[in-house]
């Protein structure tokens, strides 16, 4: 006996799906801004700060990277009220996701910063660039270019990971799905629709990251050192 798919009851509640998707974007957007801020502070502390600060940030990173997001969420939402800090479900979700992303992005950004040799900064200064120009053109943009795939991948994982927030009934897409499922009893159809929405959002964001990458790294790579290499390149292109 084959199961008859029926999407009509789910589609009737389409506005709730749209609202859920928007809420997911808002929730993960807030968490991403906060998480990247933590990551920047963390990465700079680890590379430029004193040893004790590097150690402290290292402990934070290891603690958050080696425990599940769901448990972090439960600890913040259910555990913190026990010591007197009461948060709304959405706030708890944003904090948990931000702290989680903060730990991962600290390490990613640190890898980027460490990939730029100090001599390159000195070379920039020797060329008469101002400190700000050196930070922008010699450190940030080249470092970002190196870590861009890892960083955007982590942002995608954060967007998708926000579905975990449904476990504490934060307002987002998966929670909206759970509500639709409980009114329509069309579980499979509901979660197929939800999956399609997440997939669409992910691909849309990948496209945006690609465009932003094109713009950020629009300056061409330095020209090849030898003329002969250029000639062979041209002849190969012509062949």
């Amino acid at each position: 006996m084959a199961y008859q798919m029926n999407f009509a009851p789910v589609m009737a509640l389409a506005p709730q799906l749209v609202e859920g998707a928007l809420n997911t974007l808002i929730l993960s957007g807030q968490a991403i801004v906060a998480g990247l801020a933590i990551g920047i502070v963390g990465a700079v502390s680890r590379t430029e700060g004193p040893r004790w600060l590097d150690r402290a940030v290292g402990v934070y990173v290891e603690l958050f990277r080696n425990t599940p997001l769901l448990v972090q969420l439960f600890l913040i939402f259910f555990g913190l009220p026990y010591i007197g800090i009461r948060l709304s479900a959405n706030m708890a979700a944003i904090i948990a996701i931000a702290l989680n992303l903060g730990a991962y992005s600290t390490e990613i950004l640190r890898a980027g910063l460490q990939a730029i040799p100090r001599t390159q900064v000195e070379a920039g200064l020797a060329l008469g660039l101002s400190r700000l120009q050196v930070v922008r053109y010699v450190v940030i943009i080249p470092a970002l270019r190196i870590i861009y795939p890892a960083l955007t991948g982590q942002l995608t994982l954060t967007l998708l990971g926000s579905s975990i927030a449904s476990a504490i009934s934060a307002t987002e897409l998966t929670a909206a799905g759970a509500r639709i499922e409980s009114t329509t009893f069309r579980s499979l159809e509901t979660f197929l629709c939800i999956a399609v929405i997440y997939i669409t959002m992910t691909f849309a964001f990948r496209f945006v990251y690609w465009l932003v990458g094109l713009w950020l790294f629009r300056r061409k790579a330095p020209p090849k050192p030898s003329l002969i290499a250029d000639v062979t390149e041209v002849s190969r292109a012509g062949a």
Binding site: T156, L160, G161, S162, S163, I164, S166, T174, G177, S187, L188, F191, L192, I194, A195, Y198, I199, T202, F203
Partner: peptide
């Protein structure tokens, strides 16, 4: 591009 939780729900239902 799908959250793990949704993969779990899809398998479950």
């Amino acid at each position: 591009a799908t959250p793990l939780l949704i993969v779990v729900f899809l398998a479950f239902y």
